[in-house]
Design a protein around this nucleic acid. Sequence first.
DNA 1: CTGAAAGCGCTTACAG
DNA 2: CTGAAAGCGCTTACAG
Lengths: 324, 324
Amino acid sequence: MVAERAGTSIAAVSLVVNGKQAGRISDENAERVRAAVRELGYVVDSTASALARGTSDVVVLLAPDLPNPFFGRVINAVQETLGPRFQLLLFASPTGEQPTVADVQRLAALRPAGLLVSAPTVEFLDDAPPGVPLVLLDAPGLQDRAPTVNYDLASGVRALIAHLAERGHTTIGYLDGSTPAATYELRRTLLQAEAERRGMTLLTTPPVRSRPDIAEAMAATEAALPGWRAAGATAVIAASDTLAHGVLAACARAGLRVPEDIAVAGFDDLPASSVTAPALTSVALPGDLLGSVAARLLLSLIEGGEAPETHELPAELVVRASTG
Amino acid sequence: MVAERAGTSIAAVSLVVNGKQAGRISDENAERVRAAVRELGYVVDSTASALARGTSDVVVLLAPDLPNPFFGRVINAVQETLGPRFQLLLFASPTGEQPTVADVQRLAALRPAGLLVSAPTVEFLDDAPPGVPLVLLDAPGLQDRAPTVNYDLASGVRALIAHLAERGHTTIGYLDGSTPAATYELRRTLLQAEAERRGMTLLTTPPVRSRPDIAEAMAATEAALPGWRAAGATAVIAASDTLAHGVLAACARAGLRVPEDIAVAGFDDLPASSVTAPALTSVALPGDLLGSVAARLLLSLIEGGEAPETHELPAELVVRASTG
DNA sequence: CTGAAAGCGCTTACAG
DNA sequence: CTGAAAGCGCTTACAG
């Protein structure tokens, strides 16, 4: 360790570099260490540090659909609230799939300081490395397993169904996500209950599903559209905006006018949803809030704070042209 | 190390686990080690392994705009061709910004097996950790610094300008990316040269720029639109589809019909571009090819193969309604 | 073919 | 306040 070239023991350097000199190193020596560090451009070897300490300064965000524009703001917010102390690394499993046990083991071997997991499955939680601070994002019904940040989907759903009812719709097709995440389960359940409460029908059998991919969603919709229309559907709700984009594409190809022939709505309020043809009505899920709150929970967990409570974020309806 | 509980020395376990027993461990002992590993569910501690070996099995993909849907296919392809031997981790700098020197140092301290860097700046390459296998993606003009996978932008640009010329356009507004990546520089230069060659005008002064964010692109376009129209522009090209989505939004708000009043085109051919209002003409940059070729180059670099050559991928024009 | 040992670059009790 | 030393869990020459 070259840094000690400037006078002190190697332990002293470690203490100063980690800001633990308080009352253990003289100000004079501390200053000499800092000078040496500066001159030599020394930076702690995080691998060795992680080995000695048992934990690294890496925080991993796992999401099944990371390239979804939804995560842009989540990532930025997480980075910002984590600050420079931690390094955020992202782990993406192939779109719509869950990380394998092997993936999880390899992540654990990285000794992350913390894990942020979006839309996890129960299976994933069973495999999760024990002892690693863990915060779940968008994982309704799983808050007994770990601190969780959820959206208040119920109120968003209520607003969406009320809006469609007001527009005179009574039968609604539903394009579900094929990912086995709890949040999709909940969206469907809530929509169904709310529709029922108002004497409306949400068409969920046979189930129509797609991974978060516009082309796949379009194909699924094209196949389902005749059935939905035959059942009297005048509107389609998709479990996410990406899926809804596929619905729009399918309607266009089928020669259906939106919203005149059929209304369309989604969840997320992606940036692109304001420029689709037509602009998309959506239940907005604010990603920046999700990221900042989750990161704050994780920080308090890492600092040994008591298990923080679960948080619920607003989910507001944004009405645009696709529902008239 | 509990695994040696099953008979052999700890060195033997290491050799077997790493598949280096060839002619060094008896088949009998090797088998006993494997059995023990299985029973105990042992998995190598990658931190310690990385420290001892000087390198980890982590490959890092750096991209300034990771949540851009463009990267979905890139990531999938990279993961697939890297195989199970390596763990792909993603590093995102805030949208449109470049990683800082501190970021780079912390990545280097991770001792990655390799680095994949998308749309890097020259400054980044100056800071890049020496000795780490490095492959550049979409980095025209930088192939003397490291093996690079580029798109054949020239032919895409030629097709786009030819298409607009054929439609009778002679003056074209240009919305540039504000990221200081070489690829944006090249797109502008090529467009300008090609327009000039055909006696057309690409409006680049004053420069109009935006980060890859629909709202920001819309604002930039709204500010520029009067000037462009006054100069006689009947078309707008954006440096990426995300920017083009902002242009579409701005045109809609200004009451301009696309393509009747003004034609619009972009680069990337994002999935959402087929469902915008109207569907967007775009120079398609196939992300899956980019990812698989780059990963293959990196693998050969890691395996100590000689510096692979630079590759060029096709960039074909996809014509849709936004240009008539 | 096999094992004891040094070393990777840190951190952290533990004596002074 | 300071330093010598053990230890984190592996890998890899090096003797047998």
